Amino acid sequence: MKNKSVPEIWDAIKRGDWRKPTSGIAPGFAQTNVVILPKEDAFDFLLFCIRNEQPCPIIDVTDPGQTAPPQAGPQADIRYHVPKYRIYRYGELEKEVESIEDIYKDDMVTFLIGCSFTFEEALMQVGIPVRHIEEGRNVPMYITNIETSPAGIFSGPMVVSMRPMTPKQAEEAARITAGFRKAHGAPVHIGDPTKIGIEDIQKVDFGDAPVIKEGEIPVFWACGVTPQMALKKAKPELVITHSPGHMFITSITEEEIRNAHLD
């Protein structure tokens, strides 16, 4: 899958040939979190993203009923090209599905939000390990005690993703990822997880438990699962998101994200 083109990956996802997390596939192209909700809730959610750019950097927004993201995937179809979706009704997770064809409505607006998977190739190119890719696992994610700025009906805690590395590697990773503002930017915290409300680093809220080697420290980035916490608290009638780690792969290049050409 790693050597396939983005349209080939979309086709594989639609056929059901890829239902796993997307970290490490389509190197060189940006990946995004997905939030799809009715038009009546879209303005409040847009304002929430603007006020919380680090966990919710907007890559693209569709018109109501538009299934092809105009910047991020003009030949894609958001109803089929995510490996796994989550359906929330009134804030409660109802189910996970592999297609939203029967759930998607013509008044729905799709938000594509930057993802830290986008900068992982840049880290690996300079020898910084990305442990969950090495282990063939999903990235570990945690709910923190860092509160987002509320907007309309939306508020809630920030979610973070974590990658273990040495202190020297963490310093270099912070420098590199600061250039990926549309993919969460620099880390929000390095070191002691209890300072951001994570009491046990092995007890993840999403993804897989980490493998942390001797001499390594946890490095935390803001995560695009953050909106799922706000959506759960707001309890709108219907919201569709990606399943954590199962991203929409865009036709936007990593270099475009790095240079923030989408401003």
Score class of each variant (00 low, 15 high):
213 K>Q: 14
160 V>R: 02
40 E>D: 14
128 I>E: 12
171 E>Y: 12
147 E>P: 01
68 A>N: 07
226 T>K: 00
164 P>D: 07
122 A>I: 04
29 F>S: 01
215 G>L: 09
4 K>Y: 10
154 F>N: 00
53 E>A: 13
188 V>K: 05
244 P>N: 08
61 V>T: 09
91 G>Q: 13
63 D>V: 14
254 E>T: 06
204 V>W: 04
230 A>Y: 08
35 V>C: 08
131 R>V: 15
76 A>E: 00
9 I>V: 12
82 V>D: 05
255 E>K: 11
183 A>V: 01
203 K>Q: 15
198 I>A: 09
128 I>R: 08
157 P>Q: 03
245 G>A: 04
123 L>T: 04
167 P>L: 01
83 P>T: 06
226 T>L: 13
140 P>K: 06
119 F>C: 05
126 V>C: 07
96 E>I: 02
198 I>R: 13
12 A>T: 15
110 T>V: 05
11 D>R: 10
178 A>Y: 13
98 E>M: 06
103 I>G: 01
189 H>I: 13
59 I>H: 02
251 S>V: 08
99 S>G: 10
83 P>S: 05
56 C>I: 11
130 V>Q: 02
120 E>I: 01
10 W>L: 06
236 P>Q: 11
201 I>L: 05
160 V>H: 11
231 L>Q: 04
171 E>F: 12
133 I>A: 06
71 Q>A: 02
177 T>W: 14
54 Q>F: 01
4 K>F: 08
236 P>R: 06
87 I>F: 11
79 R>W: 08
77 D>M: 04
134 E>K: 08
133 I>C: 09
61 V>C: 06
77 D>V: 03
150 P>G: 01
118 T>N: 03
76 A>F: 04
120 E>V: 00
166 T>N: 02
39 K>W: 10
154 F>G: 06
212 I>C: 04
151 A>Y: 11
93 L>G: 07
73 G>M: 12
48 F>T: 09
197 G>P: 07
184 H>L: 07
169 Q>A: 12
139 V>I: 14
102 D>H: 15
103 I>V: 14
211 V>S: 15
193 P>H: 09
239 V>Q: 11
142 Y>E: 06
8 E>Y: 03
220 F>M: 07
161 S>K: 06
190 I>Y: 03
172 E>F: 13
184 H>D: 04
213 K>M: 08
36 I>Q: 09
121 E>R: 05
191 G>W: 04
120 E>W: 05
132 H>Q: 12
73 G>I: 03
91 G>K: 12
60 D>M: 06
221 W>T: 14
248 F>K: 05
193 P>K: 09
62 T>S: 13
261 H>R: 07
162 M>S: 05
79 R>E: 08
43 F>C: 00
76 A>L: 01
28 G>L: 02
224 G>A: 10
81 H>N: 14
5 S>Q: 10
69 P>Y: 03
261 H>P: 00
78 I>E: 01
246 H>F: 09
234 A>C: 08
119 F>S: 03
